[in-house]
């Protein structure tokens, strides 16, 4: 566990030092939100729950949850998920 944390910190420092994108270096999800209409989540690990009001997606740092109304997934590949609808809140 300690070794894993050490490796993570090292990667973090290298990314900060050379100004490299953290989502690639640390394998983090990359979330783009456009207003309250669209969420683009890259680097996901799979869909956990999907209904009209809730979308839960597994990522490397936890479960990303988006709540709202009339949510629907406009596109889904193994790289990204694009959610449209009236988004009320989202977080991990």
């Amino acid at each position: 566990m300690k070794e894993k944390n050490k490796e993570k910190n090292l990667k973090k420092n290298i990314a900060a030092m050379f100004e490299l994108p953290k989502d690639i270096m640390l394998n983090l999800p990359y979330v783009s939100i456009i207003g309250n209409e669209e969420i683009l989540l890259q680097n996901h690990k799979g869909l956990i729950e999907y209904s009209k009001n809730v979308v839960r997606i597994k990522t490397t740092i936890g479960i990303f949850t988006a709540n709202g109304e009339d949510l629907y997934i406009s596109k889904m590949t193994n790289e990204y998920i694009n959610i449209l609808g009236k988004i009320k809140n989202c977080g991990y």
Binding site: I73, S74, K75, M76, N78
Partner: peptide, 13 residues
């Protein structure tokens, strides 16, 4: 499906 590179669009509940 997405693991097998299958592309879905307009996914509605």
């Amino acid at each position: 499906a997405s693991y097998k590179n299958i592309f879905f669009w307009d996914i509605k509940h």
